[in-house]
Nucleic acid binder design. Structure first.
Length: 217
DNA sequence: GACCAGGCACATC
DNA sequence: GATGTGCATGGT
């Protein structure tokens, strides 16, 4: 257990408050959002999900039957819509065939193997799999994203080119294994990253006052 | 108009 | 195993 990691967490929590992640009404919506938000601003994902809701299509069996082209048109605002339509359908056919389209059943029927199963779905990589595990199923895995790597590199904790797995282990070996903590910590990292830890040369002064990163221009 | 966003798969060396 | 590239909309 690394005290500095908890100190950073506490500073972020004091500064930003609880983030109440994941935004979404159902665990299925969380899964859909996790795929749609790949390399995409959440704001755009909201528009895509709103389109699905408007057409009353935010339902595993309905999307399973929907032609890829129709799905692509609906999720267009989230970007990469052709490839994401395929990815969504890959996940949903996995969900429907193995678990009758029920996310709850997916978690209860796949004791410990779920991460591996998810990674076998074309279009689901480590971050998406872990987001589904943590935010749809309360499984205590730490979610790593581009902000996580950038921030903790600038704080000089980890190398810039660290792998997903090693970055995840860095947190999970140094923090208590706790889904609530991992949930809030990742969300706070994204909040910090979005607002204060952008790619150079537009980095804002960090509210934590712990980062010496300076813009080059 | 350039840059960036809560990645991933695939090609090529 | 490491590196490069396509995928695409919408906000700043």
């Amino acid at each position: 257990m690394n005290k500095k990691l908890m100190t950073i967490y506490n500073s972020l929590y004091s500064h930003f408050g609880p983030q109440n992640w994941w935004p979404g009404d159902t665990s299925f919506e969380v899964c859909v959002g996790a795929i749609l938000t790949q390399n995409t601003a959440w704001q755009n994902v909201e528009k895509a999900i709103a389109n699905l809701k408007k057409e009353k299509l935010l339902d595993p069996h309905k999307i399973n039957k929907l032609p890829v082209k129709s799905l692509a048109r609906l999720i267009k605002p989230s970007g990469y819509f052709n490839i994401k339509a395929k990815r969504l359908k890959n996940f949903i056919s996995f969900l429907c065939e193995r678990y009758d389209g029920k996310v709850g059943k997916m978690f209860s029927n796949s004791s410990g193997h779920l991460r591996g199963h998810l990674l076998n779905v074309n279009g689901i990589g480590p971050e998406t799999a872990d987001s589904i595990l943590l935010y749809a199923g309360d499984v205590p895995v730490f979610v790593v994203d581009a902000y996580t790597k950038r921030i903790f590199h600038r704080l000089k904790f980890t190398p810039e080119d660290i792998t997903y797995h090693n970055m995840q282990q860095f947190f999970m070996k140094n923090l208590p294994i706790d889904a609530m903590l991992f949930n809030e910590y990742h969300a706070l990292i994204v909040m910090l990253g979005k607002n204060y830890c952008k790619k150079k040369p537009r980095c804002e002064p960090c509210p934590l006052k712990m980062c010496n990163y300076k813009t080059e221009t």
